[in-house]
Design a protein around this nucleic acid. Sequence first.
DNA 1: CATCTAAACGAACAGATGTTCTATGATATG
DNA 2: CATATCATAGAACATCTGTTCGTTTAGATG
Lengths: 211, 211
Amino acid sequence: MPKISERQRRILEFIQGFFEERGYPPSIRDIQHGCSISSTSVVDYNLDILEREGYIRRDREVSRGLELKSLAARGQMEVPVIGHIAAGEPIPVPLADAWDIAASAETIAVPRDLTRGRQEVYALKVKGLSMIDALIDDGDIVLMQPTSMVENGEMAAVWLKSEKEATLKRVYAEPGRIRLQPANSLMQPIYADPANVEIQGKVIAVVRQLG
Amino acid sequence: MPKISERQRRILEFIQGFFEERGYPPSIRDIQHGCSISSTSVVDYNLDILEREGYIRRDREVSRGLELKSLAARGQMEVPVIGHIAAGEPIPVPLADAWDIAASAETIAVPRDLTRGRQEVYALKVKGLSMIDALIDDGDIVLMQPTSMVENGEMAAVWLKSEKEATLKRVYAEPGRIRLQPANSLMQPIYADPANVEIQGKVIAVVRQLG
DNA sequence: CATCTAAACGAACAGATGTTCTATGATATG
DNA sequence: CATATCATAGAACATCTGTTCGTTTAGATG
């Protein structure tokens, strides 16, 4: 991850905020005043570094000739794909640096609508046919929110410890047991001992690309 | 739909192209030269109309103070939701003005990745549980490409005429019959007379929002 | 035809804008 | 400590930029 100074980070945030609000980039003097810098040449100096490190692109001698490289500026979110989910495999969970987009091996662009404004969203690719009861097919992408608790009726990535099995199901807490309800409501629920159930994220969306 | 003149439409396209390429809007003189207009005041005059009609937002006396209102400028596509698909109902097909976004009752934002650069994409909301064999749930959104022909193995919205039934299945042409294969490969295919099968669009993606 | 409105043109202006340069201050290193 | 590099400041400059105004042209209408 390219290292930038605190001031450069603040300048970048200012640019992003300005762009999201106005739909066009700030001028050098907008940045100067917005970041309490006393000279346009400091802005210029730091913009050159942000460009060198890949955060922006500059067109020289063009008013507001700044382009933000991130998708965030475009109402989209770049979600890291951190691995696969399959029945007999442990469920990948995001590390602290999962949202360090520049370092992600793979990301997908997702409209903000789909993530409902959440910031920490990650994606898993489904492998195999074992999530069919969740109406999720091989190759589907599930968007996940990291959590170890869900409300009743929410769909979660569940790790069943003794079976060593991952599954996606709607979770309902009942007295003394957990009911795991397939999304396919024509199928039967399973009941599990709460001690055997580990919730490893909430499913917030599913995306399937067919062609 | 707000009516704009040919010149205004060309200016708008120029702005969109410039913005997608550079990440910032054109100046008045960029537009002037890009659209072969001989005076900046003509640009100004036409920009005011584009603003009045809702295509752009202008900040006065600000260089490049133009904001495009459309999602297209942000790497996303605004897809019209033209209706519901349910088993016993005719499948909505897009009318010629379906892609007139300003007139659509409902649209969803979709990243360009998901539509693979296609321009004419529409969405249908799934109603009921009858598309379960396609691994598609009540409430899911299917993105469709208008077509009456698909390649073998592609998923299509199929209208079965004598049954008066809509279904989403992979379509395979076989000698003398059409095989309709559920996406859920654990389920059996059905075979239909080609004369009974009407293909009313190709499924290109499925989006499910859970929470 | 005359009249009115919309659209286009051209010139000029004030100020916004990015760049450049020199000098100073801060930090890191041997 | 001395030296080198990084970061900041301030001033000045050329030109880009949007706006304004008066005029002309185009199109529609009675």
